[in-house]
Amino acid sequence: MGDMPIIDREKCQGCGLCVSVCACGALGIVENTVKAVEVDECRWCTLCELVCPYGAITCPFEIIIENGQGSA
């Protein structure tokens, strides 16, 4: 299963703003809080993180060095 946006259930107020801006249908409201329902569809656009008024959903990035590329 791919990575999914991280939802803080204590901060999430179930307002659904993130669901309304999600262009790929990856998020949905289940039992009054947001859940990632279609993980494979998520393209990590981070719009959900941008619009959330409560900081309840985050889309962290892994920062890595590509092996054998560039010069050290």
């Binding site: 791919g2 990575d3 998520c42 393209r43 990590w44 889309c59 962290p60 990035f61 892994e62 920062i63 890595i64 060095i65 590509e66 590329q69 560039g70 010069s71 050290a72």
Partner: peptide, 12 residues
Amino acid sequence: RNRIIITDQKGL
């Protein structure tokens, strides 16, 4: 997706 891959350290 959720990875930032440094491809050119010298350029960076």
